[in-house]
Design a protein around this nucleic acid. Structure first.
Lengths: 206, 206
DNA sequence: CTCGCAACGTACCAACTAGTCGGTATCGAG
DNA sequence: CTCGATACCGACTAGTTGGTACGTTGCGAG
């Protein structure tokens, strides 16, 4: 039979709990027991669904990718006619997401990859898939915007600019965590927007 | 008597070891035992110098600040006559540091703050001091460059641009860790340079 | 209904964790 | 020399860690 999960099963509860707990405390400091109690599930259920803590880490990153990509796919910034407008609207959308508590708007995979890039290659790969996969959704629009302005000869690639947007966002989250507030992050996103406006020859707003 | 430390004492060895071990495995995953054996020191020495693991975390962040700030103070990028040239040379310098293995060029405090921003306020503050303090060393040059071009009215502040440079660097490190290579990071630093060139009305090189 | 299997729950363990505690070595002051 | 203080050692502990063993429940197939 197929698995429509009308009722939330232990696996889903664990994955959702993982997103929250790991974003609060980091991956290593998140214990299996804590993950279980946050999910309202016993340890037996945990190791029934995941062979190890690391396997949950991979699944959590994949779950994060699925959740966020669904959210961005539905977002309104795609509706602009001009490709550059879509890119700028994406940035604005990202900025609008920076609200509430730090664990609510920071990135799970950005946090996890810092702790696991050397010790858990599977998790690192899952984090890379998440970040690079999301960046890839921007490439087409950036490429179209570049083509309209024959910027191809500049040596600058759409792929590299797409990755740069993610770097700025990840860095903005780190600064926000260090300073304990969201303002720095928003300000950095403003700089990113201004960069793209300047790059594509549009006069910055403010 | 004053403490000239002709011979490396246990405290210094522990701090140096901490920089290395934590950059490899993150803060939480770095155990006290491992820190000790990496430093060639016993556990007794550890808890003689530090009341707790968290206290070492704070000391490690401070030690990182001291080490890096000494290095940047001596660097050649200060020697340019024009303030904007100094800022751009700083960026080039940062890019030139991105070589070798990932644990060698990534940032200790950027790694630590992600794991501890909620659970260990003392460590978070130490990380903030390190990042914000380093950013502050750029403010004067950015301000001078802005003044020369009467950019003050734009609402853009030197402080915010200085912090943005750090955000880009931190984000570049995360991307590098995710992709397992330094190239993404360098590319992001190139974007940062181009932004500043465009912002200050200088034609980008490549 | 029975069978079988996936989805859990409970009790448990070996290894590891941060931190302690009594002891020793060294060194400068008096 | 003695005295005291600082630096360091290493065995120990109480609690925690990821992971296991085994029992129970529920549910769809035949």
């Amino acid at each position: 039979m197929f698995r429509l999960a009308a009722k939330m099963d232990a696996r889903s509860k664990l994955l959702d709990a993982a997103l929250s707990v790991i974003r609060h405390k980091g991956y290593s400091a998140s214990t299996v027991d804590e993950l279980c109690s946050a999910a309202g599930v016993t340890k037996g259920a945990f190791f029934h669904h995941f062979k190890s803590k690391d396997e949950l880490g991979v699944a959590a990153a994949d779950h994060w990718s699925a959740t966020t990509s669904a959210m961005f796919a539905e977002a309104a910034y795609h509706r602009h006619a001009d490709p550059l407008d879509r890119v700028l609207a994406y940035i604005d959308f990202r900025k609008s997401l920076i609200t509430g508590g730090l664990p609510d708007f920071t990135c799970l995979v950005g946090t996890m990859v810092q702790e696991t890039y050397e010790t858990a290659p599977d998790i690192r790969d899952a984090c890379d898939r998440s970040i690079s996969g999301h960046a890839a959704t921007l490439v087409a629009d950036i490429e179209a915007a570049m083509a309209e302005r024959d910027m191809v000869a500049t040596g600058l690639t759409a792929q590299s600019l797409a990755l740069h947007t993610q770097a700025v966002l990840q860095g903005a989250f780190i600064l926000a965590k260090a300073k304990g507030g969201a303002d720095v992050a928003k300000s950095s996103v403003d700089h990113l927007r201004r960069y793209i406006e300047l790059l594509f020859g549009r006069t910055p707003a403010a």
